[in-house]
């Protein structure tokens, strides 16, 4: 994280404004919650955000790569669901060992992502349409494999799901949180310290220029969708660890949450500008809103959506204002 800060430190502050606004919002929301409800003040509330949303965080990180190139991936929710169904099916019905299941699930996600990337790049099908096909395809696979939501009692999965890692102050996190944070760290490294990552920004800045500069545009474009597919599959595994079941109707609308988190985190939808760290903040903001509404108890769940819509509006207008200056 310090390396990340060092690299980005020389960029104009203006770039960081949306992210700083998100951070301020997060802190503000936490302070408000802590002032209203005593239980809110405990550190565990924050750790619970990570525990509950680690799977979404991983999905949103993959989405960040895609959006940075100026694309979009609508298939993530379906791929998450497919991963949960596949895990349950392979562990339960087929009796595969846990390690093989993990590998198989990740491979399927990678494959689906690569396929969509190839459609987008080589056949020039718009990302919106290609990943929409992916959305239907993956959800269709889910329903074909199983229409029920069996629970999972595999030893390995149960251990990962139930292990609590103690932290000072009587708090704890889950193994999934560590995995999610590792994904964030790797993503940050990829984006800021490798040629692949810089090419991602380049493609988002101007695909035509990137081609003329001799950058590996084709490989990069296919790779970001492959990466997003992989992250969705991993996110699906984390969701399995969280819920210990494989539900073909889970994670509907996750693509919206992921896109919202990325945008609230300050990444520009047309590509070329944004940070993984912003996405982390975006996911935490979404979680914080949900937590506040849960704590309130009188507000119905739909207020979450309305508030997220309002936040999206506020952040988009903020981005417009910054761009205009």
């Amino acid at each position: 994280m310090t390396a990340l800060a060092r690299v980005t430190a020389y960029r104009p502050q203006q770039r960081h404004l949306p992210m700083l606004a998100t951070l301020a919002l997060l802190v503000g929301a936490y302070a408000y919650g802590a002032s209203q409800y005593t239980a809110f003040g405990s550190g565990q509330v924050v750790f619970n955000l990570f525990i509950n949303y680690s799977w979404l965080l991983v999905v949103a990180v993959g989405m960040t790569f895609v959006i940075l190139t100026g694309g979009i991936d609508l298939s993530v929710g379906s791929v998450v669901a497919l991963s949960t169904v596949l895990s349950a099916e392979l562990l339960g019905e087929q009796g595969w060992p846990a390690a093989a299941v993990v590998v198989a699930v990740l491979a399927v996600g990678l494959l689906l992502g690569t396929g969509m990337g190839a459609l987008i790049h080589y056949f020039e099908i718009q990302p919106f349409i290609a990943t929409l096909v992916g959305l239907f395809f993956a959800r269709g696979l889910c329903l074909t494999i199983s229409t029920e939501a069996p629970s999972i009692d595999d030893g390995f999965f149960t251990v990962i799901a139930q292990t609590q890692i103690p932290l000072p102050g009587d708090s704890h996190v889950s193994i999934s949180v560590l995995i999610a944070l590792a994904v964030v760290a790797v993503a940050g490294y990829l984006l800021h310290h490798t040629r692949f990552g810089r090419t991602v920004y380049a493609v988002g800045g101007s695909e035509q220029s990137a081609v003329l500069m001799g950058l590996k545009v084709a490989r990069t474009k296919v790779s970001v969708y492959a990466l997003s597919g992989f992250c969705s599959a991993l996110g699906g595994l984390l969701l399995v660890f969280y819920k210990l079941s494989g539900d073909p109707l889970s994670a509907i609308g996750t693509e919206l949450d992921a896109i919202a988190a990325v945008v609230i985190g300050g990444t520009i939808l047309s590509g070329g500008s944004g940070y993984v760290l912003g996405t982390v903040l975006g996911v935490l903001v979404l979680g914080m809103i949900q937590t506040l509404i849960d704590f309130d108890g009188t507000l119905s769940s739909w207020w979450t959506k309305i508030v997220i819509g309002g936040l999206l509006f506020a952040f988009i207008v903020l981005q417009r204002l910054i761009a205009r200056r």
């Binding site: 920004y201 988002g204 800045g205 101007s206 220029s209 003329l212 070329g272």
Partner: peptide
Amino acid sequence: VNLLPNLS
């Protein structure tokens, strides 16, 4: 000039 305005 085909360069990338969003990079340094």
